[in-house]
């Protein structure tokens, strides 16, 4: 059994190195083969554009760890943007954004209540919410994009700077640090890992399992609200189709980062790696003047590679695992 345990720790170490190594490799490849990649401006752009996805993916990661999923993020940010733009002229920018973000958090709360306390399947609940929120956003905006008054305060979140660094990047760093802290050092985060690994066992161990799930969705709602606010500020308008594929993109980020979709494992580092890889590749596609079709094909290939590479280990392991022998 000790040999097996040594094998297992070696694989774990390998995957931990792998998680950080792969974005590094992608970075090097981009530096070598993509013109104008390695300029301060461009790198800043990459980080700024990727920030939104990164922040939202932090939320999705928390949900995935607790064993759930959220398909409604795209509609939540859409509704946020519409509410914000509608309220801004009369109630001021700050209050408008605050309300918009509250809406996104409420959506997360709604999801959490239906999933944790009414025990409805997360898959269907968030799909239903996706449509409900999108319908609401369309209703409020009349189906058309609404432009916000172009005030510098409105655009600050998306285009402003703090000590020379773009605001989205600062917020993204804060979001990642918060996620890391939550996951590693808090009772709530530990609860997510326990609940996500085995819900029944968590209940039997006396943990507030349902509350834990609800909390994950609310926290994700917060991350989503932040991402949505930055995006709204960046584009300066509220539209029902602001970022319809956001949820899928966050799932892709988590999958590429190696976070399993059935819960119990995950880390902030993995989210960052997944987000960086996608941001760099998207940037590369633009700089290489490829059409958006190639961006999508590349994304699909990367996702496939990211989930298949770790399989190489398990395929070999399947034949040396002490407790599973298979004549096939």
């Amino acid at each position: 059994m000790t040999t097996f345990i040594k094998q297992r720790s070696a694989i774990a170490l390998g995957s931990r190195i792998g998680v950080i190594a792969i974005p590094l490799v992608v970075f090097i490849v981009c530096v070598l083969f993509v013109p104008r990649f390695l300029s301060v401006d461009n790198l800043q752009n990459v980080l700024r554009v990727g920030s939104i996805l990164l922040i939202a993916a932090c939320g999705q990661a928390a949900i995935l760890i607790v064993g759930g999923i959220d398909f409604s993020m795209g509609s939540a940010v859409a509704l946020l943007s519409v509410v914000t733009v509608i309220l801004a002229p009369e109630h001021g920018v700050a209050l408008a954004f605050a309300c918009g973000m509250c809406v996104a958090v409420l959506a997360g709360l709604c999801n959490g209540l239906l999933i944790a306390y009414l025990k409805l399947p997360a898959f269907l609940v968030t799909l239903g919410m996706l449509m409900v929120l999108h319908g609401l956003a369309s209703l409020l905006s009349g189906g058309m994009p609404l432009d916000a008054a172009p005030s510098p305060s409105f655009l600050w979140l998306g285009s402003g700077h703090v000590a020379g660094i773009p605001v989205p990047i600062v917020l993204a760093v804060l979001a990642v640090l918060s996620l890391h802290f939550l996951l590693r050092y808090t009772v709530a985060g530990r609860g997510w890992f326990l609940v996500g690994t085995n819900f029944n066992a968590a209940v039997n161990a006396g943990l507030p399992a349902r509350r834990s799930v609800l909390l994950a969705y609310v926290v994700a709602g917060l991350f989503c609200a932040l991402a949505g606010a930055i995006l709204t500020s960046r584009v300066g308008s509220g539209q029902p189709n602001l970022y319809p594929d956001l949820a899928f993109a966050t799932i892709a980020v988590c999958a590429i980062g190696g976070i399993p979709l059935n819960g119990g494992r995950g880390s902030a580092v993995q989210v960052v790696c997944g987000a960086l890889i996608i941001a760099m590749l998207n940037n590369a596609v633009v700089l290489l003047n490829l059409t958006s079709a190639w961006q999508q094909l590349l994304m699909a290939a990367v996702i496939a590679a990211a989930v298949l590479l770790p399989q190489l280990h398990t395929v070999r392991r399947r034949y040396t695992h002490l407790f599973k022998g298979n004549a096939q």
């Binding site: 530990r190 890992f193 326990l194 690994t197 085995n198 029944n200 066992a201 968590a202 039997n204 119990g264």
Partner: peptide, 12 residues
């Protein structure tokens, strides 16, 4: 089914 968290460490 109801007791252990099998993906996590014994300490957890």
């Amino acid at each position: 089914a109801d007791g252990l968290f099998l993906g996590l460490s014994a300490l957890k």
